[in-house]
Amino acid sequence: MDETGKELVLALYDYQEKSPREVTMKKGDILTLLNSTNKDSWKVEVKITVNGKTYERQGFVPAAYVKKL
């Protein structure tokens, strides 16, 4: 869990989004878990840094590609 009590997951593999509802992640990324009720895909939040500014983006990733921490 992070400092706000949200559950975290670790990306086990790289994943490139295939639709606007998904998010891209790299192996080793730590993501905030938002919903894990679907056995196939979990909703997560990723933090992306562009030019020194951090943005948050929500979307789905394959459940088999992440592990709860």
Score class of each variant (00 low, 15 high):
7 E>T: 13
13 Y>T: 08
46 V>D: 00
9 V>S: 00
25 M>H: 01
61 V>Q: 00
22 E>W: 05
20 P>A: 11
36 S>R: 06
33 L>R: 01
1 M>P: 13
45 E>V: 14
60 F>D: 03
53 K>T: 12
62 P>H: 03
18 K>G: 07
24 T>P: 07
10 L>K: 07
17 E>R: 14
5 G>R: 13
40 D>Y: 14
19 S>V: 05
69 L>G: 01
58 Q>A: 10
22 E>A: 06
30 I>M: 04
26 K>D: 01
19 S>K: 05
64 A>H: 11
4 T>I: 12
23 V>F: 10
33 L>P: 00
55 Y>N: 05
29 D>I: 05
52 G>W: 04
17 E>M: 11
53 K>W: 09
21 R>G: 15
14 D>R: 01
30 I>C: 08
12 L>A: 02
4 T>N: 13
39 K>M: 10
4 T>L: 12
39 K>Q: 11
59 G>Y: 05
33 L>T: 01
23 V>H: 01
14 D>S: 07
9 V>F: 04
33 L>C: 04
12 L>W: 04
60 F>V: 05
60 F>Y: 14
24 T>I: 03
29 D>W: 12
40 D>K: 11
59 G>F: 08
23 V>R: 01
52 G>P: 00
29 D>C: 07
34 L>E: 02
9 V>T: 00
57 R>E: 03
39 K>C: 12
64 A>S: 13
40 D>L: 11
56 E>N: 15
53 K>A: 10
63 A>G: 03
56 E>T: 15
51 N>Q: 09
11 A>K: 03
38 N>L: 09
39 K>P: 15
23 V>Q: 01
6 K>R: 14
39 K>S: 11
40 D>C: 14
10 L>Y: 10
58 Q>L: 05
51 N>C: 12
24 T>S: 15
48 I>C: 12
59 G>K: 00
13 Y>R: 15
47 K>Q: 11
36 S>N: 07
47 K>F: 08
62 P>I: 08
47 K>V: 12
33 L>F: 02
3 E>W: 13
28 G>W: 05
29 D>P: 00
10 L>A: 04
52 G>A: 03
17 E>K: 13
24 T>C: 06
60 F>C: 15
30 I>T: 04
22 E>V: 03
69 L>A: 03
17 E>S: 15
69 L>M: 09
54 T>L: 10
5 G>L: 12
22 E>S: 06
32 T>F: 09
37 T>E: 14
53 K>C: 12
56 E>Q: 14
60 F>H: 05
27 K>L: 04
56 E>G: 11
66 V>S: 00
25 M>Y: 02
67 K>Y: 08
4 T>V: 12
